[in-house]
Each structure stands twice: as C-alpha cells, then as structure tokens.
Write a protein that binds this DNA or RNA. Structure first.
Lengths: 161, 161
DNA sequence: AATGAAATTTAAACCAT
DNA sequence: ATGGTTTAAATTTCATT
C-alpha cells in the first residue's frame, strides 16, 4: 500500500515537478496536471503545511568558499547524555546535517567549513568541548557527485510491490 | 577574503531569503533588497546558471513511506575502479547522496528505502553486485534532527576572519 | 476538496543608461 | 550590471458546487 500523498496522483506529480524546479508556477503545474490553479494551490499548501515537502534554495558549498565538507561521527558517554549533546549540536551553524545513527557511534553530523583550520576549530573548540562527547571521528567528503531527493517514479513503483 | 557571490551584498541576501522560502517572488525580493526587479532576476539567473544555488522541493522521507534511511560506506578494489563504481552508483534512484570520502572506505552513499527488506535488496542485489565493490558497511539514520543548508550570516562572518 | 471569475500583483521582454 | 516601461501572465481572494 502506498502511504498518504503518494497514493494521490495529483500530489505525486506535484511533488515530482517541484523537485525538478521549485519555482515552477502554479499555472504551469495546473496545465501539466490538468486541474485548476486553485486545486494546485490547495494541494501545495497542504503538502507544505504537513511538512511533506519544503521548497528552498540549496547552496553548493564549494561555490561559496566552504571547501572543507566533512562527516563527523560522535560517541557519547554516558549514553544518557545523547539527547543533551544533540540539542547542543543543533545550535551550531556549521552543521548542515544532524542525526542519530546506529553502529559504533551515536551521532553523525555533516559540517561545512571554510578550510581545515576552520574545521579543526569547530571540532576541537566546539564539538569536542561538549559535555558528554567521549570520542569523535572525522572523514572528508572529497567530492560530492550527487545530492538530491529520491526519484519519485521509482519509489512509487517500489512501494507498490 | 570572501569568495565570489558572498562578497556581493545582493547575492548574499538573495541566497539567504531563498533558503528560507524558495518561492518568494522576485518582487518581494526586490523590495527587501531595495533594488529593481530586473536586478533581482539577473542575479538570480546567474546564481542558478553558475550552479551556486538550486531551488527545489525536498521530500521528508518518512512522510512518503521511506522508513529505512541509511548510510552505506563502500570500499573498492582495485582502487583503479573507483570512478567506474561511482558512475554506476550514480544511476541508482534509491541513492540521494553520493560522494568520495577519505578514510577506510572510498565512497559514501545515502540510501532511502521503504523498509529493511528493500534496503537489503538494494545492498545485496545492486550495490554489492557492482564490479569492483570489495566491501561495504551500512549504518541506519535512526532519526534526522537537522537537514538544512548552512547559516549564511555565520558563514560570512567566518569567511571574513 | 475542487473550481471559476474578478481584481490585484507579478513576471517577461525590451530598451535605455 | 542596473533600472524603467509595457504587455502578458500569474496570483489572490472570494464565491460556488
């Protein structure tokens, strides 16, 4: 069974077109979907309000001088402090991604920094100073080949199996 | 020194507003920046054409039934085959992120799957079957707390140091 | 929830500086 | 690279089914 939103042909296609071009006009969407503009607007607003999608500008980090893009894995001890550490990490502007993760470490963050010095500063003076951070491990993204949202046509097919 | 784009007050603010709302009208942007609409449009087009930003709809994976979101690290042998493996991985619709990475593994991908069975299928039947994939290691994102673009005000400050 | 119509706002194309 | 003008297009609001 398809989850809500993807089971609706209109929502599904709406999302698909907005993935390709976040600024496509409602009028164009209405033409593509063969429904009225008002319908497109209603559905779009629902999708955004329900936090299914959000339309925003993604920055290409190296194009704006952020040349040290890395993944930092963090282990917390005692484990009871994990949420506290997450809350603190959440406030760091360098961090573009923050998640709980399974495996040898508890938390994964992605950090976009100016250069290695900047990364070192963030790591030593900020992340490693958080109470509860017991260990951390850093790896660099040497080159990013793909950064996208998943292919909806494929997903629909997959979910219908 | 600031890199191109961020050294320009207009581009900088343009990006900042578009990060918050990818569908903000050029007219509103022009009012906020106190410049003409034409200027906003020209600068926006340049930013997009130069691949500094792109505006698109990001999907919240669990809202559309993708409940197994994971990171897979891949090591390639012989190392001469890395690019070939990357090219193959690039074509997989499940993969939302693909990068070369430093450390014990060569490649990192993020995969959005329906459930564990789906992930297993992708891993065993697709990724691990690629010629040159020698080893792989999977970890789950148990919960994503932050998924954003970096805070521009902070970055500017940092880059000016 | 989906539509239609009118008034308002916005975008696009063009030209000028 | 920026701004102004005009025409076409899109959006918003409100009413209707």
């Amino acid at each position: 069974m398809l989850p809500p939103y993807l089971d609706n042909e209109q929502d599904f296609n709406l999302i698909k077109y907005l993935q390709e071009d976040g600024r496509i006009s409602f009028t164009d969407l209405a033409k593509k979907l063969n429904v009225s503009i008002s319908t497109v607007r209603n559905r779009y607003n629902n999708l955004v309000n329900d936090n299914v999608i959000n339309v925003y500008a993604r920055i290409n980090p190296d194009k704006i001088g952020l040349n040290a893009y890395s993944r930092i894995l963090i282990s917390v001890r005692p484990k009871s402090m994990i949420q506290q550490v997450i809350d603190k990490l959440y406030t760091f502007p360098e961090i573009s991604f923050l998640a709980s993760v399974s495996g040898d470490f508890d938390i994964e963050v992605n950090v976009m920094c100016r250069d290695n010095n900047h990364l070192l500063e963030v790591l030593h003076n900020k992340i490693n100073q958080i109470e509860g951070v017991y260990n951390s491990k850093t790896n660099f993204y040497l080159k990013v080949y793909k950064f996208s949202t998943p292919n909806l046509d494929y997903i629909r097919e997959e979910l219908l199996k």
